[in-house]
Design a protein around this nucleic acid. Sequence first.
DNA 1: AATGATGCCAACCGCCAATCA
DNA 2: ATGATTGGCGGTTGGCATCAT
Length: 305
Amino acid sequence: MVGEGSDCKDSMAKLKKGPWTREEDQKLLAYIEEHGHGSWRTLPSKAGLQRCGKSCRLRWTNYLRPDIKRGKFSTHEEKTIIRLHALLGNRWSVIAAHLSKRTDNEIKNYWNTRLKKRLTRMGIDPATHKPKSNSGQSRQHADLSHMAQWEAARLEAEARLARESKLPLLHKLSSVAPPAPPRHMAALPCLDVLKVWQSSAIPSCFFRSAASCSSLESPTSTLNFSCSSSLPAPVAANEIVAAETEGNMDISYPPYDVYSSNYDCAFSQDSGMRGDLVGEMEESKVYWNHLLNLVSSPMMELPTL
DNA sequence: AATGATGCCAACCGCCAATCA
DNA sequence: ATGATTGGCGGTTGGCATCAT
């Protein structure tokens, strides 16, 4: 394997490293604006840069790209990161795909330097998103946790699709088959985890305990995701992805789940920023109702095995 | 004012998966 | 089918800025 990394290493003698200068930025910008980036490997020489292609790509994707939002993260963005991290673990690129205009590197940095510490201060384990002292599990909890895993797979697929296509997704997605669920989940209602999230009747400890299903745990997340890469792309929320692509819509999460009830409270105390929570709740309800309608449509019905 | 500790973030590195020839 | 190439990802680091003593 000889990747961009090795490419950098092999020609280390003549290639520059370290912080980029304004001149280098201008060269890279000018070249990409005129020719597009095409092959990153050959770009540096064409653009007159003494950098490896990988360095150019990183500089472009993390800093120079015109559609990057910089600066302070909003409370809404923070919550979205935390909730997606609870589902996805350290899948920064997937999380970034759901936070329009933020780069995975920025989100990763933000998580590592701030959010992780804040959660720790709040008594929440940032790796598992569980309160430090917690116990108890049941078959039902395991099912829910597994459904959360399923939802995580869907989120990842959405992110992938959003990345892969700038075209209106409705047409493209209609040809993609929905994923086959794990065998033991087939009898369960379709994506009940979403309904649980929507239901204020479910005690918060319920989902919290679901997250403790030990057989599903991974080093970085409550959820083991080992099967995700082999899954076909779930395509339930195609319209949402399209809306996200076109209109920079952030995905909101309903404020009823255990994470929300903990986080919302803690954030209001911790950061002093309550925000328009009511409006956000309404917005979340609308989004999730829409999503539930989509996943209940024939296209997304899970096959019984 | 000096100095050490801590926070922050841009950039690098190594690995992996997809693609190509 | 296989090996080479490329792009992308996540973890880590280096260095500057800020804070605390």
